[in-house]
């Protein structure tokens, strides 16, 4: 339980910078449920590469800007 993933993300900040986008709005844009977006944002679930690209695309950012390997 609660195993920390080696990947950090900036989704919360990016959502805030994009008109305070809600998790539901982001979820709808990338074709996922709000619960999954919440799990990704909280670092509880590592998305697939495709989902990661979709998230980055929504924010007009590169993958590195959204996700960082922290080991």
């Amino acid at each position: 339980m609660g195993r920390a993933l080696p990947i950090a993300n900036q989704i919360r900040r990016l959502r805030f910078e994009h008109g305070e986008m809600t998790q539901s709005e982001l979820a709808e844009k990338i074709g996922m449920t709000r619960q999954t977006v919440a799990a990704i944002e909280a670092g509880k679930y590592s998305p697939s590469l495709e989902a990661a690209f979709r998230i980055a695309h929504v924010f007009g950012a590169s993958l590195d800007d959204v996700f960082q390997w922290v080991g």
Binding site: S24, E28, M32, Y45, S48, A51
Partner: peptide
């Protein structure tokens, strides 16, 4: 359940 909760199962689900 709200609409977003009834969407098709995503990769995590």
């Amino acid at each position: 359940t709200p609409k977003d909760g009834r969407a098709a199962a995503d990769e995590r689900e």
